[in-house]
Amino acid sequence: MQEGLGAWQLVVSGDPGLYGIVGLSLAISLSAVALAALVGLPLGGLLALTRFPGRGAVIVLANALMGLPPVVVGLVVYLLLSRSGPLGSFGLLFTPTAMVIAQAILITPIIAALTRQTVEDLWLEYRDEMNAMGVSPLGRLATLLYDARVSLITTLLAGFGRAAAEVGAVMIVGGNIDGFTRTMTTAIALETSKGDLPLAMGLGFVLVSIVLAVNASAWGLRLFAQKRIG
């Protein structure tokens, strides 16, 4: 009870420690989504529109990677970025950049796989019309990504939700350094184990609110699109 009150006070008083952590978490997860979108959207679109040997295997792989455990991604990125690793010379380990990379790797398969499905379904619907209009291959990709934009934005929001909520990857490659790489999820894990329940609960409250807000936006977007785009 007491802890709950303390948590609430931290949230409503705009506690700088708490909101610093929230801000960093959002910055990292949003950057990760942007990076993953940059790779995942065109990749998913290309997978939908091209036929090549081994395409089926790539699709199965992308689908399987959607369920990738964050700690495994964290471990792999750790090995790549650690001083003795192939990318060790960049000195990225235990920086926010490393966390962005890890989260982007975590959600790129999600975005690519869902994009592939969405674009392929739309292509089946549009194929005849587009062929009859003589649309170029690149034009097809652009058109389908644009016309599927509502579903694709929902996909990006799903990716953001997964990134913001994961703890394993950012914990391993970020190191949970106070004021530098501490995110909502790693802070909750730490504070809970230390017994600082108000901060942990306050962060938990904010995190759940963000996830709820993201899903509410996705829903609102869908309603809006149904009315405006059809």
Binding site: A132, T143, G230
Partner: peptide
């Protein structure tokens, strides 16, 4: 297709 166009039996409307 150059100077030809088709109206399909079930035309698909772009979104």
């Amino acid at each position: 297709p150059r100077r030809r166009a088709i109206l399909f039996q079930r035309p698909v409307m772009l979104r």
